[in-house]
């Protein structure tokens, strides 16, 4: 029984991009406004979930040929290694540094190691969520 999902698919295509943008925005702005790595990751993940919802497993897999376990592992690795980096620099573990740069387009921008950390968090969240959902639905088939 094939269900016609044309409306859904059409609208999803637009919506997914809105969500993805928004997710990245949340992730980046987290330090000053609500948001941050975790929420950003969740939103990104929900975009992917929306893709799964509107189409099917195989299609998404084809268009996103990633093993999300590795994505998650990479995330954890990033998150921990920022902490680990500080060991190399001889400061207490997890020391974060930040600096302000005057970049041409963006104006005064803050660059911090927290961002890398948050990126790790976000990646993990995306990876884990997709892994979980993917494993369940794949298994149930």
């Amino acid at each position: 029984m094939k269900i016609n999902d044309v409306i859904l698919r059409t609208i999803s295509r637009i919506v997914v991009f809105i969500i993805l943008t928004f997710g990245v925005y949340l992730f980046l702005s987290g330090h000053n406004t609500p948001g941050g790595g975790f929420i950003g990751g969740l939103v990104l993940a929900s975009a992917i979930i929306l893709l799964y919802l509107s189409t099917d497993l195989e299609t998404v897999q084809k268009s996103l040929p990633l093993d999300f376990k590795y994505v998650a592992a990479l995330g954890v690795f990033l998150a921990t290694s920022t902490g680990f980096g500080s060991i190399i620099f001889g400061v207490p573990f997890m020391s974060q540094t930040f600096a302000y740069f005057d970049l041409p387009i963006f104006g005064v921008t803050e660059l911090t190691t927290v961002t890398i950390f948050e990126a790790g968090v976000a990646l993990t969240v995306v990876g884990v969520l997709v892994t979980i959902i993917f494993s369940i639905s794949e298994d149930g088939g």
Binding site: K69, I87, P92, F93
Partner: peptide
């Protein structure tokens, strides 16, 4: 301050993650 203290926790985690790969 002694960064060694964190190693019993962080080392297994990091290696664990690497082992996933």
């Amino acid at each position: 301050m002694n960064n060694l203290i964190v190693l019993p926790l962080i080392l297994p985690i990091m290696v664990g993650v690497v082992l996933v790969f």
